[in-house]
Every structure is written in structure tokens, then in C-alpha cells.
Write a protein that binds this DNA or RNA. Structure first.
Lengths: 201, 201, 201, 201
DNA sequence: AATGAATGAGCCTTCATTCAT
DNA sequence: GATGAATGAAGGCTCATTCAT
């Protein structure tokens, strides 16, 4: 009765949806959300404009889907890193993971830097983004808490800011940014950290 | 039939131009460049839409002017800070200056975060932005070079990223961000820095 | 390999076609022709969008079919009412029939009010609608002609307009419109009509 | 200081706004609200699409303006007709006024027939339309009330329906509809009305 | 210098219709 | 007969920019 099997349909849908997401991410990341038109996305994906709306309710919805997917991926990565080793080791792993994630999701990262600066766009994404950020902040801060540092949240903030700033530099010019070396330097700095004598806020 | 002296004319021009820049900055920073219309800027500045084009060739040109003005201001601030005291003292002064500048130019800072992430927009600003960034990076790195640290450029990069990341956090929620305390913590951290044993990249 | 008999096929066709017409009428009448999408019709009918085009050449064609069906029904109703009794009795029967038809075909009636006002749409229906209206007008006027009233066509026009206007009021708010009483009042008015002394145009 | 006088601006605005309203009315009335595009209106008015939005917030707003203007005009006409003469005379005047108004505002009348049938469009007009209709109904019913007829509201309804139905016939084919004669016939019918023996609902 | 009416390209979105299966 | 993914032409609307005055 179904002239195309459900599987075929599923595959076609999957294919189109992916093409849209990939194209949208590339364009959003390169031109910014606002300067990317739906026409461009469709054209880049090799589909018609109209088809995009079979899969996403709006341009905004595409952005949302992109964020959801990437945020989920990142959280999974961090979850997988948790372990029962020493806090210092965990911290090092987290730091390296941040840089690795930035490297692998370069386009999304770039996009998110652009979006973060626009409260209006952010609001359209739902409340999830800040939740996500908090989760990462908590994860990053956990070793500090476990170590018993006096101001773990501030420590986490500083570390997060450092990684964030470096990732942005990387994102803006990946070719010339020595990501690995910088990562090593950061890890080393926190590694050599004398236990609780850190100057704290 | 010459209703104004040349001086009055000049003053009026200055006045209008300034109003435009102030309004544009406020709006760009709050809504983002793309979501701010020329109509809004003119209305906020209390002038007609058409007049804006007497002073600026385009909306893009307003952005450019804003960047030029702010970048110039920041560079001046840093120039004024140079002195013949110890590198460590200079470093501290620079760090504090960065935070102070972020605090005083909050709106511009916010705007620049949004714009920086968009290569396409950045390109439209002329090559000046990266020059400006390099200059700051150099200034920030000078104490490290003077101190003879093994990798002064990497050190500068890390410090810059740290300050940048923290400034962004501040920019996104100035009310709840303890800017002064964080500044103190950063300065302290670099102050207590044992001379050349820093783990380097 | 012929999974269905020709009869079953035929039945399935009838079934689908009817479902489409029923759904389309309901939606057209509630939302108007233009605000009803083919997708809605198909969804309401429980079929796929594509299938609709197996039965109807276009959305417009659905409207046409609806009109044809309903106009035919109404004409049949009126034909069945003709008889050899007195003109006055026939007139009463016709009047009541008009209201009854409006009541039974409420949805179609509503739709037709919307369409009638749009010459462009009317034209697309073929020339049938005005023919149909003329036929009804003739039927309604026949008792006046038989009675020998001086201006039977004008009389018919007036009666038709009256019924039409009342039907519209009814169609717009069926719950609060006392259709039966109004019908009685109209019939009574024409019943008590002294034979040929009517003030005529 | 104002390079064009306020008067000149006012005149230009007036001119453009009027052109838009005139064109919109003509098109809405001929093609229906939905089938008329903003592009068409602008083109017919000899202006650009964008300009329309300097004067009206939306296509819907144009419709609203059209309705407000016409409804106001009609109410004024009726107000001007009130007088202290006999109820029968007033009734005659009202009836004639209805037809005259329909004749003069033919396009608006056609439009309103189309719109009335679409609750969705009607709703967008605000609650004013039904108020307006009620007002007319009341005005039309007043002579019946003054005369002491048993069911003045039903009488008004019937009269209103009659006029409405006739006006629609006229609106659909003004060339071939003998408006004056029909008006005479209707007035005559109500004139010869024996005081309170009317069959009432 | 200053105004604001006017333009027109482009934006996001909808939808009737087609077509491979 | 039946499906639903895919198309592309509009649709309403916004906005940077121009221009007569």
C-alpha cells in the first residue's frame, strides 16, 4: 500500500535534514545567523527553499536544532570523561576535552560565539543554553571543589574564561593558532598548581 | 542670509554626528547590528533618517566609525600606561586597565563580541581590527618579553584570552559579575608568578 | 495479482472522493476557500495530498464539484415540489423549501455567500451559477406569473432577495436565528396577499 | 528648517493614502480580499510596495481603514435622515437611503458581502462591524417600534434582509438591476402597510 | 544642514502541484 | 490506487538608501 517503503522515506528524510543542518551550520558560522538567508541554506544543501519547511518550522528552528544537537554532543563528551581518578587528572582531562571539542565542532563554536553576544537570538533558543553553560561550569569546577579550594566557583569561572578566550582565538584563525601547545601550557599550569595556596578571589 | 557662522555649523555637525554614534552604539550593543535598523538609530538620535547619510555613507560605515573611535580610545589608554617602572608593575597596570576599559566601554565591548565572531562583518571593517588586536597583544606581552620569559607571545595570548573571556562574562551580566574581585585575583595570580619558572608552551 | 475486483475499486474511489468533498466543504465553509489549504483538506479526509489530484484536477476543481453537486441537489428539490395545486400553495411550498434547503445545506450555503461576492471566483466556476440562480428565480416566480400579477419577475426578485437575506442571517448565526418562525412569517405575509392588488414596481 | 513645508508633506501623504485606499477598494471588491496582493494594490495606486507600509501597518490594516471609513459614512447618512415627521415617512426615507448608499458605495458594498461571509476576516476587523450592523438594524426598526407593531425587531430583520438581498443582487450586476424601480416597489409595499395588522413572527 | 516620502531588492514563509515509487 | 518528498512561484513585509525640496 505504501508505494515507497517506510525505510526509503526515512532515509530520504534523514538525508535532506542532514544536508540542511550541515549547510546551515557552515553558513551561520561563516556569515552569522542574520546574514544567512534561507535561500542560501537551501541552495547550499541542494534543495528547494520550500523543502526546508518540511523539516523545520522556521529558520529559527534550524538554529535551535543545531544548538540542541551540539549541546547534547558536548555534554555526552563530558559525561564520558568522568572517572574515579584524582581530581587533578580529571581537571587535565576536562581541559583537554574542551579544546578537543572546540576543534571538532569548530563551526558550531564559531556560531555560538556570535549567538551568545545577541541576547535576542539567545532568547529564541529557549532557556536551554544557559543551563548547558552552567552544567559545563559545574563539571569544570568539580575538581576544584573536590580539592577543597577556597573559592571553587571563582576558580571554575577563571578557568572557563581562559578556555573560552583561547577557543575564540582559535576559532577565529585556526590555521595560525597552536591549539595543542596552548592546551599543553594550560594543563601544565593547572597541573603544577600547588594544592590550596592558589590566590583566590 | 548666512544664518549661522561657520563655527556654529561645525558645532551642529559634531553634535549630530555624536548623537548618531551614541545611539547606534547603544542599539547595536543591545539588539545586535543586524537587528538594528537605520530608522531606529535616527529616531533614537532625534534626527531624520536622511540626515544620517550626510555623515555616514552607510549603516556599515557607522559601525566602522564606532570601531575606529573605540579602538583609538583603547590604544590611547594603553599608551598612557607605559612607563619605566618594573615589568611586573606594568603588567598589573595593563591587566587592571583591560578590565577598566571593558567596564567603561561596556556597550562597545558587547558589540565587538558579536561582530568578532563574524568574519564577513569583520572583513567589512577593514584590516584594522586585527592590527588593533595585535597591538594590544604586543603591549600585554611586553612585560613578559622584558622579563625574559621563554615564550612571551604564548604568555600574552593566554593572558589576553583570560581577560577576554572574563570580560565577556562580565559583559553578559554586569550586575552579577564581581569584576573588581576577579581583577584582583588575576593580578594576584600574575603578581605571585615566580620569575621564569612559568610552565610555558 | 489483481487484488481487488473492479467493483471494490469503484467503491474505494467513491469513498475517497466523497471524503474529499465532505472535508473540503466543511473547511471551505468554516475558513473560506482561500484560507483552506489542500493539505488541510487531505488531512481532514484522511488521505494523502497527492491522492486528491487523482480525483480532482485542482483545488479549484474541488470547489466546482461542490457547487455542481449542491446546485443539482437544490434543483432536484425544487423539481420535486412542483405540482398541480393552487399557485398560492405552491408559493408557500417553495418558500418553505428554500429555508429547509438552507438549513440542510448550511455549510454549502455559507460557502456560496462567500464565493458569490467574488466575480473572479464565480467566473472560474463556469457559467453554471447564474443559470442556476435564474432557474430558481423562474421557479419562484412561476406562481406570480400564474396568478397574473403585473410584474411577476420583480415579485420573484423581491421574494428571492428576502429569502436570501434571511438565509444569510441564519447562516451567520444559526443558533440564535428563529428560522422556523421567520419562515412562518414570510409565508403568512405572502399567503394573506390579496390577489392582484400588490403594489408592484 | 523643514525643507518641505508641513503642508506639502501633509498633501503628499493625503494623496498617497487616498490612492492606496481607492485602489485597494477597487481590487478587494473585484477580486476579493485574499486574491488581491499588496503588490497589485501598490501597482494600481502607482506607488511602490514599500510605501504602502508607511501608511498602513499591514494589508489587514488597509481593509480595516476601508471599513472604518465606509461604516462612518453610512452612519452619518442615516443620522442625517432622522427627523420628526411620521414614522411611515421616516421608514420610506430609510429604505431609499439604503439603496442610495448601496448605489454610491457599490464597491465597498461588494467587498463587505465577501468579507461578511468569512468570520476569520471579520474577526480581524475588530468588533466594530457587528456594532455597526446593529446600529443600522435599530435605526431601521425604530419606525416599527414607534408605530407600536407587535414584533418590531423581527420586522426590522425582515426589512433588513430584504434590502440586503436586493442590494446584493444589484451589486452583482448593477447594469441589469432596476434599482430605482425596486426601491419604489419596496417603499410602496411598506407604505401601504395597514397599521398593526401585519403578520408577525 | 535637514527632512521624510518614496523606492525596490530581498527576507521568511506558504502552498498548489508534480512525480518517483 | 496511493504516498509523501520535493518544487517553485508567489505572498506579506522590512529596510537600507535616495532624492526633491
Amino acid at each position: 500500500m505504501t508505494p515507497r517503503t517506510e525505510q526509503q522515506h526515512q532515509a530520504a528524510r534523514e538525508e535532506s535534514q542532514q544536508r540542511i543542518l550541515v549547510s546551515a551550520l557552515a553558513l551561520f558560522s561563516r556569515l552569522g545567523y542574520e546574514r544567512t538567508s534561507v535561500r542560501m541554506i537551501a541552495s547550499e544543501a541542494g534543495i528547494s527553499q520550500g523543502l526546508l519547511y518540511n523539516y523545520f518550522a522556521s529558520k529559527d528552528d534550524v538554529l535551535k536544532a543545531l544548538f540542541e544537537r551540539s549541546m547534547r554532543d558536548v555534554l555526552r563528551t563530558f559525561e564520558a570523561l568522568q572517572g574515579s581518578d584524582s581530581p587533578a587528572e580529571r581537571l587535565g582531562r576536562y581541559i583537554r576535552a574542551c579544546f578537543a571539542v572546540a576543534e571538532e565542532n569548530l563551526e558550531f563554536w564559531r556560531l555560538s560565539y556570535g549567538v551568545r553576544a545577541q541576547p535576542a537570538v539567545l532568547a529564541g533558543l529557549g532557556a536551554d543554553f544557559s543551563t548547558w553553560e552552567s552544567t559545563i561550569l559545574d563539571t569544570l569546577g568539580e575538581p576544584f571543589r573536590t580539592l577543597g579550594l577556597p573559592h571553587p566557583r571563582t576558580e571554575a569561572r577563571i578557568l572557563f574564561a581562559l578556555i573560552d578566550g583561547l577557543s575564540q582565538q582559535y576559532a577565529r584563525d585556526p590555521e595560525h593558532f597552536p591549539l595543542r601547545e596552548i592546551a599543553d601550557a594550560v594543563v601544565a599550569r593547572y597541573d603544577s598548581m600547588p594544592e590550596p595556596e592558589l590566590p583566590a578571589s
